[in-house]
Nucleic acid binder design. Structure first.
Length: 117
DNA sequence: CCAATGACGGCGG
DNA sequence: ACCGCCGCCATTG
């Protein structure tokens, strides 16, 4: 098993742990996985995540809280609808009060525990 | 094998 | 605050 394909699995694992009503960023995920600066790869992994079912891709936005990935959902408003269904407000394609709803994996997950399980 | 691409982000001007 | 450049690296043509 190569480290790189494992990276994708880790990305999905983190995304699956994002609580309902919370959002995180590509960079935060990359950083938590020890690949700071590889946020683009996280985005690439997310692009391939639509085939999986339990990955709440709508909870991953960019560092400004902008729904940059909305165009990759089934419909252009699907991502916003999903977020609004979780009591989040989306205005002009960005999450309102992004900072307040931001969920940093590094602040809520234990590194060792994550890699162990 | 080489070049282009992308759901990003940091930094400089 | 706005704009543009560059690094990041798996995937695709």
């Amino acid at each position: 098993m190569s480290n790189r394909s494992d990276f994708y699995s880790r990305v999905y694992a983190v995304v699956r742990l994002i609580p309902e009503g919370r959002v995180t960023s590509y960079g935060a995920i990359a950083r938590f996985l020890g690949a700071a600066g590889s946020s683009r790869v996280v985005g690439y992994a997310m692009n391939a995540s639509h085939q999986l079912e339990d990955v709440p891709a709508h909870r991953v936005v960019n560092r400004n809280g902008v729904l940059t990935g909305k165009h990759h959902f089934s419909t252009s408003d699907a991502m916003q609808r999903l977020l609004e269904a979780e009591s989040l407000s989306v205005v002009d394609d960005k999450v309102k009060d992004f900072k307040m709803h931001f969920w940093d994996p590094a602040d809520h997950l234990d590194q060792a525990d994550f890699y162990k399980g």
